[in-house]
Nucleic acid binder design. Structure first.
Lengths: 115, 115
DNA sequence: TCAGCGGGGGAAAATTTTATCCCTATTGGT
DNA sequence: ACCAATAGGGATAAAATTTTCCCCCGCTGA
């Protein structure tokens, strides 16, 4: 796994929140799991714009951070489901706030420079 | 300036919010400007962990996105001040939510893996 | 036997972001 | 003449993230 070379700074709450939500698809994944898209293959299909590999990596990170947990069913075919932990649920309002604000301001960003 | 090669996806509000708040120091900068740290040199001193160059680049991006605006006083020595636009002020609650959540969960992340 | 689905990961390349270094310019002070 | 403070940016290097490609395993069904 990749080793960070520059130490992190988690002084302020913002850094922590960005660590959890800042990845390209992390917030989206959390949202989907919350909605009930639990299986990796479902998530891959749902977030088809992201490469499956990144979704997997994000899932792993979120699991390591204690935002989600994994349930493995030893069935055939193998089945895996992800669920939000209490910590993961506690972050939902933050995501909702971001989502709400972003949607309200979408018009502005559609016009504004295509940065 | 750097040209993106992969088109952005601003489908959901989350992407938009992350575009504005996801940079390493963007939320911090917005917060500081809101508090009254307005001049570039002040911001550099205040956010001394970030390289001044990046703060400048973030300021430019935030200005281009319409989150902040710049007032230039043609005094000697030259004086520049940044202020939040209405759009910038509208994002403050989102930052507050992130900050609040991050601080509440800080303990968890202090213990958890030093990812 | 071979293709396909499920979940998953290594290695390397490509892309994006951040850091470092050093420069511009104006003006005041010593 | 030279250094300081102000605000800024080009070029390049380094770091971090994301993508791409191709592999693993267990099992099923044709």
């Amino acid at each position: 796994m990749y080793e960070k070379k520059i130490p992190e700074n988690l002084d302020c709450g913002i850094s922590i929140a960005i660590k959890v939500l800042g990845g390209k698809w992390k917030a989206w994944i959390i949202d989907k799991i919350n909605i009930g898209v639990r299986r990796p293959s479902e998530l891959h299909r749902d977030i088809y714009l992201a490469s499956p590999r990144v979704v997997n990596m994000h899932l792993k990170e979120l699991e390591d951070m204690g935002i989600i947990y994994k349930k493995t069913y030893h069935e055939i075919p193998l089945r895996v489901e992800y669920y939000l932990t209490a910590l993961g649920e506690s972050v939902l309002p933050v995501i909702a706030a971001m989502e709400k604000w972003g949607n309200e301001q979408r018009e502005h960003f559609d016009q504004a420079v295509s940065l």
